[in-house]
Design a protein around this nucleic acid. Structure first.
Lengths: 342, 342
DNA sequence: CTGAAAGCGCTTACAG
DNA sequence: CTGAAAGCGCTTACAG
């Protein structure tokens, strides 16, 4: 039942040449004579031959694949980065495998084992840490034999892989500074999960801005979420039970800002009249939310593009050194969710 | 410089057995003796051997890869479906390649050529049509040698691939019916791009509901967008220049509904007080938008899960027949963007 | 339970 | 410009 694959040998036979010649005609056309090339072309058409890239890649000791390790592809923030990655991948002859970790360690183990199995030529790390296979045997051989990796979005402290990020501390400083400039003094921060680099960087920026303004940097000004809308809602509920309700809230991403605003509205507070809110990321919906979100814009697609380009460079010239850190510009986008304090 | 790969032969040598035995120890452990198994295990650990899956797959005449052809991965609607696909793929030992067509025919040609090159064992089609390679030579051999495919989200008229969708006509009927029940008579529809199956199905549902209510089905009640927020905004601007402004608008997706509402607000109309709006899809933000969107819920993750499960079945039992059409439930979610007409 | 050998579909150094 | 042959890393029918 199973039909035999049509291979390069079938084409060779029909064209009356060797398989070596067919291979050359296909991939190094300038090395074969016009006439032979034509016969091969015809034979390919007649047989309906389609190259087996896997076999080719095995021979060439490559896979043509890269894997993108993402905490959550259903999150638009990451999927837009993926889109950038994918665009340069196709252009450069690579395909990208989805590695959705869901922040689940066991899923990371799985992907780590893929990495080991030479499934991919390189890895794009968007999840903030190096995946490690199950069990302690990890460190010995494993760490020394990692394929080329580049890190994006979330830096990995202590690693020296090429990294593409924005300056999260500075951006958070700008966002908070904007609130301060508008006269707010009682400002609170809703961050991501604890022990997360992004959370820490943005919190540092928040404190840095307070410090410059001479506002005390109390730890009770920090609330923790998990970057989801719901966690923003939950955070707001904690915030209104606080002793003196803040006049402004800086959220570590737009989803949480939306959660905060939506919970505020439900609780009868109007944004920005009574409480100002600023977000982070500038996801697509921010502009059309009500009120339109004041937020930090991240060049998401570009981050993906630059990262994939670095990876391609790494793969093409294994020796060559690559800039370790690339910092892309972020920008404060002033819209309507924050206003002057009066 | 380039270090030689550690292969199964290295392990065999160290363990003092043949490579065949190593292979068996790894993949058919019950066929080899306890003692041998242990020696192999030790040799693997000592050498740091990692299997080359590509070589294995070549030998097994499979790739372990499926490609998901998506119109736009940066769209949360699709990325959530991808997430479902990916979850069963990992479980079943497949990896999923991203094929982002961006609705660009030239990109579809590229992916069609991948399909030809035996890069994937199967294809998931979310983009509403079969990708065809550049040039007319397509039809002859091409169509008869397609790998197993399953279609999801958007049915492909005239094809008989297994298909997983919701009943878009019925869902649009429900959505429109909800507006009618609340007393609206002057209702207008913002659809997707012309010549799109989704657009057509949802429009049919819209008209079907009007018909049941005895409301005339004028073509000038139809406006066209492209499923983006911006196109919703644009559509609204056309709508208010219409002779008698409608009291309700049914949009073919949530993004356009958000665009419509946001443009309405800018133009000084309040939603739902003056104009009711209902969307479609129930994207994550719908619930937290202002006003919270009344919309049709689609089981996105489940669509992806079921589709990938069908594909796995197709790949495992090439002979076995598969249900051609699976219709998953959709549901009207009543929130606050539409209200009784008075 | 295990090994020698053939073969999956391709590419390339070597020789002509 | 072209062919014969070796080999990429694996698996499995065959024989023992």
């Amino acid at each position: 039942m199973k039909k035999r694959n049509i291979t390069i040998d079938d084409v060779a036979r029909l064209a009356g040449v060797s398989n070596a010649t067919v291979s050359r005609a296909l991939h190094k056309p300038n090395v074969v004579s016009e006439k032979t090339r034509e016969r091969v072309r015809a034979a390919v058409a007649e047989t309906g031959y389609t190259e087996n890239v896997m076999a080719r890649n095995l021979r060439l000791d490559r896979t043509g694949l890269v894997v993108a390790l993402v905490p959550d592809i259903s999150n638009p923030f990451f999927s837009e980065i993926l889109s950038g990655i994918e665009s340069v991948a196709t252009r450069e002859g690579y395909n990208v495998l989805i590695g959705n970790t869901n922040n689940d360690p066991s899923r990371e183990h799985i992907y780590a084992s893929y990495i080991k199995s030479n499934l991919a030529d390189g890895i794009l790390l968007l999840n903030g840490h190096i995946p490690v296979p199950e069990g302690a045997e990890a460190n010995a051989n494993y760490m020394n034999n990692l394929p080329p990796m580049v890190v994006l979005c979330e830096r990995i402290p202590g690693s020296n892989f090429p990294t593409i990020i924005i300056d999260n501390v500075d951006a958070a400083d700008k966002a908070t500074g904007h609130l301060i400039e508008m006269g707010h003094k009682n400002i609170v921060h809703v961050g991501g999960p604890k022990n997360n680099v992004l959370t820490e960087d943005r919190r540092s920026g928040f404190f840095q801005a307070l410090e410059k303004a001479g506002i005390p940097q109390d730890q009770d000004k920090i609330f923790f979420g998990d970057f989801s809308i719901n966690s923003g809602k939950k955070a707001f509920k904690e915030i209104i039970h606080t002793e003196n309700i803040p006049t402004a809230i800086f959220c570590a991403n737009d989803e949480m800002a939306i959660g905060v605003i939506s919970a505020a509205r439900e609780a009868g507070f109007s944004v920005p009249e009574e409480i100002s809110v600023v977000g982070f990321d500038d996801i697509e919906l921010s502009e059309s939310y009500y009120p339109p979100l004041t937020t930090i814009h991240q060049p998401r697609r570009e981050i993906g593009i630059v990262a994939m380009e670095k990876l391609v460079a790494l793969l093409s010239n294994p020796g060559e050194p690559i800039d370790e850190l690339t910092i892309l510009d972020s920008e404060l986008i002033v819209r309507k969710s924050a206003k002057v304090f009066d």
